[in-house]
């Protein structure tokens, strides 16, 4: 398989201090890869290095020539008070056209994209007047306008309910089946990460890289999160639970009994 992105011994950071160190990863065309790790572990820096907005302090990040990357930011970072409609958001990536209005083919594309993402009829709505899942899909639509080879998403399911999470996973799987590569970061080990074909445990460096059953193991998870975790298996899928919680429940039970 041809690789789209190659990280070779990459260290990146801000103000000379590395936030990620000695990272070695390859991402092939059409892959679906999840990155898990605690807050502050450098996941976003990893994505930025991948996208090229942060230059490595050491090592090299090689992107295949002509590869089209598109980025979907965390919805929490979006300015929801900004006066912008769904249609305006989706169209803003087409920066080459020196005119505000949409060309005929652009209009057709926007309509088709909104329809396929279940957002038909919402083009004139303000971005705030949408449900959580719809908001996430608007930014997905904006990224897809660029016809990317690789879609990069930062925490696409953070702060959404179960139904919305399923909705997002569904759309991403469809896109992946069409050949679009996907890289995403997530906090959600059981709801999202365990279902992906490839997973990277990350905390400033790659701790484990492989299919969920090989990666979601207590030793890797403890090194990633710095806290004990147990892994159960349910229907061939790993299920991660917090370890050492027995003591808390014993103490709380004792308190309610007294």
């Amino acid at each position: 398989m041809t690789s789209l992105i190659d990280f070779v011994h990459v260290s990146c950071g801000y103000g000379g201090l590395p936030a990620i160190e000695n990272v070695h990863i390859s991402i092939a065309a059409g892959e679906f890869l999840g990155v898990v790790g605690p807050s502050g572990s450098g996941k976003t820096t990893l994505l930025r290095a991948l996208l090229g907005t942060v230059k490595p302090l050491h090592g090299t990040v090689t992107r295949k020539e002509g590869v089209r990357l598109a980025y979907v930011p965390q919805v929490e970072t979006v300015d929801w008070n900004f006066p912008v409609t769904v249609g305006e958001v989706v169209l803003m990536t087409r920066t080459k056209r020196p005119w505000p209005g949409a060309a005929k083919d652009e209009k057709t594309q926007v309509d088709a994209l909104l329809e396929r993402l279940g957002l038909e009829g919402l083009a004139k709505r303000h971005i705030r007047e949408l449900s959580g899942g719809q908001q996430q899909r608007v930014f997905l639509a904006r990224a897809l306008m660029q016809r990317p080879d690789l879609l990069v998403l930062d925490e696409p399911t953070s702060g959404v309910d179960v139904r919305t999470r399923h909705e997002i996973l569904h759309v991403l799987t469809d896109l992946n089946e069409e050949g679009i590569g996907i890289v995403l970061t997530t906090h959600d080990l059981n709801g999202l990460a365990a279902h992906l074909p490839r997973l990277v445990c990350f905390n400033r460096a790659v701790i484990a890289d492989g299919p969920p059953l090989a990666v979601l193991r207590p030793s890797f998870l403890e090194r990633t999160y710095g806290a004990p975790m147990e892994v159960l298996e349910h229907g061939g899928m790993p299920v991660v639970v917090d370890g050492n919680l027995g003591e808390f429940s014993r103490r709380l039970k004792a308190k309610s009994a007294s």
Partner: peptide, 8 residues
């Protein structure tokens, strides 16, 4: 609206 994504 979104300088980081615009840059990317």
């Amino acid at each position: 609206f979104d300088p980081e994504v615009a840059h990317v």
